[in-house]
């Protein structure tokens, strides 16, 4: 009798275990083929491989968006100046007490940090790294900005390239850790708010903005598409859905950007790298750029409250 009970318990546990294993697997979309639910059952050895029990193939869909560092580089390349008054003050980090507000402002501060770092405002960068360390600790991912990393920041405080590398690695680790912890919704909030802040910084002081910057702002219609697609692939919590819904006016403003499709071409340089020419072109009149700036500012100002 006891043996039968134990057998039943073992079968039940095995079933629960398989469910748990599947539940803990990656949640990014997969499509095509018949996915075998036992896909995640086997464990990789220390070299990153193992024997699989899965027989049917699948197509894994990854989602990504340009990082705030790329947006900051774009702002600088266009000839715009650094505006410290546009940043969300680093000292406000303590006022964000719920995980969704912390994730949103982690994204905001990440974009502010990228902006300051690209413009070589290193002292400002360190203030924002400290604010980010505080928020990431509150979110339980404090190890991405460990004391060792902060020590490295101090040692390299005058080295722009080193700071850029540290900031990029920190946000990659943060994204990886949130996904690994099953907090993809928070990862989505960080990405979306980081994009919003990057656009907010790009659209400040438009009266003195170079023509080049306005063109680059119009092109962000595509990066907005990346961000929305990425965030919609995650589990839709009330907070994530709320932020995406709040971004609807931004989507509406970008819908006024004109797009002309063009044939892409490729050429190879002597260095071995490729140049992809042609492709789409984007244009927007001043009213559209102003509408984009206003809608971005509205969402961003709500985010930092």
């Amino acid at each position: 009798m006891r043996f039968i009970q134990r057998t039943r318990t073992s079968i039940a546990v095995l079933g629960l275990g398989v469910i748990l294993v599947i539940g803990c697997g990656e949640s990014a979309e997969s499509s095509q083929g018949n996915q075998d639910p036992v896909a995640q059952e086997s464990v990789m050895d220390s070299e990153g491989m193992s024997v699989t029990k899965r027989q049917s193939t699948l197509t894994k869909i990854f989602h990504a968006a340009p990082s705030p560092m790329e947006t900051a580089s774009l702002i600088k390349r266009s000839g715009a100046h650094f505006h410290s008054d546009a940043l969300n003050p680093a000292g406000q980090s303590a006022q964000y007490t719920t995980s969704d507000r912390q994730a949103i402002n982690l994204g905001i501060y990440g974009a502010d940090l990228s902006y300051a770092t690209i413009f070589e405002e290193n002292s400002t960068s360190i203030d924002y790294l400290e604010a980010i360390q505080s928020l990431s600790t509150s979110l339980g991912v404090n190890d991405v900005l460990s004391d060792d990393v902060m020590g490295s920041v101090e040692e390299n405080r005058n080295d722009r390239q080193a700071l850029i590398r540290i900031v990029s690695e920190t946000f990659y680790d943060l994204n990886e850790r949130l996904k690994f912890n099953g907090q993809e919704d928070l990862a989505g909030l960080v990405v979306a708010s980081g994009w919003i802040e990057g656009m907010y910084l790009a659209t400040r002081h438009l009266d003195e903005a170079p023509v080049e910057l306005k063109k680059r702002i119009a092109e962000q219609k595509l990066t907005l598409d990346d961000v929305m697609r990425l965030c919609r692939s995650y589990e839709q919590t009330a907070e994530l859905t709320g932020l995406l819904n709040a971004m609807a006016p931004i989507e509406a403003a970008f819908a006024q950007v004109n797009t002309e499709e063009g044939e892409s071409t490729t050429n190879r340089e002597e260095s071995g790298s490729f140049v992809i020419g042609g492709g789409p072109t984007f244009s927007a009149d001043d009213a559209t750029i102003q509408a984009i700036a206003a809608s971005v500012a509205s969402v961003r100002n709500a985010c930092i409250q």
Partner: peptide, 10 residues
């Protein structure tokens, strides 16, 4: 298996 990624390049 296959994997796909779409991303904007600036």
């Amino acid at each position: 298996d296959e994997a796909e990624l779409m991303l904007t390049f600036l």
